[in-house]
């Protein structure tokens, strides 16, 4: 179908974007890669008055080294992020999760910041951002603020980014732990039924610390904190499998046409064990 009529504004600075959102009123929306928004517009499930295109804002493009962390412009494409040498070296988990998003053509347009701002509970990037302790720079009419990953994802498709604000970038503390993103889906190009993002610090064959993010086990991506605690000291496949039995603890999986909640809980336990073993090399 053809989307409803809207106005289109291409901006080159964050200030222009914020001004355009303000003058557009409550139905103004940011468009980044458009890979979630345009399908929605074509089905006429949204009727924005103005689309503010942030794809031309230099500050939102590319990846930079900030010493202890790397910073990724929110409008950097999935393809740009997963192939970036800094991401591959210092935040491999993000590259691994991004590589499972949709298909190559969508990854050429869709942006990692767009996926984070969109916050689809089945999206692959939020779980990786949680496990990597990302922090988010949000700009709005009253200036800029930084929000930690644990406070960023609020509810279904809802983040700390307000309607008059824009996600500028996100930063990830450099992480050289073993990592793996394991996504369970039935067909090519499909969304995750369940996904698990794991980073694990292994010394002398023993897990010292682990951080695990779960995809599609709640209205937002969530950390599997019980598993993280149970993994400390694990040194065998059996230890990891036992710790992973807690993967569904405290989650709020839903039932839909792809899977029932109890099946998702089962998958979370199995996939967590697989992801942690792959990340730890145990």
């Amino acid at each position: 179908m053809i989307p409803v009529e809207f106005e289109y504004v291409k901006v080159t600075t964050i200030d222009q974007a914020i001004a355009a959102l303000k003058s557009g009123g409550e139905d103004a929306k940011i468009i980044s890669g458009g890979q979630s928004l345009l399908p929605v517009l074509r089905l006429r499930m949204a009727e924005p008055s103005v689309l503010v295109d942030c794809g031309g804002i230099d500050e939102m493009l590319g990846v930079r080294d900030d010493g202890g962390s790397i910073t990724i412009g929110a409008a950097t494409t999935h393809h740009g992020v997963m192939n970036n040498p800094l991401v591959q070296k210092h935040a491999l988990l993000l590259a691994q999760a991004t590589a499972t998003v949709a298909d190559p053509a969508i990854r050429h347009r869709g942006t990692t910041g767009g996926a984070l701002a969109h916050a689809d509970p089945a999206g692959d990037v939020p779980a990786a951002a949680l496990a990597l302790n990302a922090s988010f720079v949000i700009a709005g009419p009253s200036g800029r603020r930084t929000v930690d990953a644990k406070d960023f994802f609020l509810d279904y498709f809802t983040t700390a980014v307000g309607p008059d604000e824009i996600l500028v970038s996100f930063s990830i503390p450099k992480c050289d732990w073993g990592s793996h993103y394991s996504k369970f889906s039935r067909t090519a190009q499909a969304w995750a039924i369940v996904g698990v993002a794991a980073v694990v610090n292994v010394k002398g064959g023993v897990i010292k610390e682990a951080r695990i993010g779960l995809t599609n086990m709640a209205p937002t991506a969530v950390r599997a904190s019980t598993v993280e605690a149970a993994l400390v000291g694990a040194s065998s496949a059996a230890d990891i499998t036992a710790a992973a039995m807690h993967a569904a603890d405290g989650t709020r999986a839903t039932s839909d046409l792809h899977a029932k909640a109890d099946y998702r809980e089962h998958l979370a336990r199995v996939i967590t064990a697989r992801a942690v073993r792959a990340a730890a090399g145990i």
């Binding site: 458009g34 345009l38 399908p39 053509a105 050429h108 347009r109």
Partner: peptide, 9 residues
């Protein structure tokens, strides 16, 4: 680069 031209304005 490949893109889906139905998903680009």
């Amino acid at each position: 680069r490949s893109v889906k031209s139905c998903s680009v304005l």
